[in-house]
Amino acid sequence: MVQLILKDFRVHALLVVICLAALFAASTLYIALVLLSGNGFKTELMLYTLITILSSSAVSLLFFIQDEMFKTDAVFVSLPVSRKQLVWSKYISSIVLLLLAFTAHFFGFQLGVVINNGVGFEGAVVYEGPLLWCMLLLAVVAFKSYAFPLYFKFGMATGGMVFSVFQLLVVIAFLYSLQFETWTDQINAVVVWAEQRSLGGLFGMLLCLVVLLTSGSMPLSAQLFKNKNLGT
């Protein structure tokens, strides 16, 4: 299975580097420009958070898209691997990509702050530490992981469309919730909550997520993929 995970990174190494560099550069430029402009900062930082989540989510689908384009599932199923291994490897490489994407954004943010000689806004202080980014990552993994069975069932195009509708509903719900409280206060409250529970709490969340994935979404995807006709 390790080979299945590595093959994507071997084949698409350049594409991965380009995507991560783009995320890093986008974060740096956005933060540097936003912080320097000093206007409408709260709204623009909220927009930044949304873009971070959506762009990382898109990058995590890179290998799914490539597999669909090149029809490589049929090729790799004919190698000495099982379909279950293929499904699990797709999950793992997708989560690794998500982790890399958030890391690129995180360091992009830090560079933007350095260019501006400081955060310059109290609400954005939490973005300087890794805790918020880890929590964002876990939340996105939890949310996205339940989109994977859709891809295995319907393919990238239809599955992607169904998932986009779900994603849109969540974004609308999120934006709606912002009417009731300042969003930066909400984020700070979540971070404070996590800090109170220390790293052990975060580790517990991670463990719950892993159990949720390995006993729910992954077996479901494997079952859906098991009887799928490939290369037809």
């Binding site: 093959k7 071997r10 084949v11 090149f70 029809k71 490589t72 090729v75 190698l79």
Partner: peptide
């Protein structure tokens, strides 16, 4: 006709470890 951007040498490096 998959991974057409790769050379045979790189494709071999992808396939060989499976065996």
């Amino acid at each position: 006709n998959y991974y057409e951007h790769l050379s045979l040498k790189r494709l071999k490096n992808v396939i060989a470890p499976f065996y």
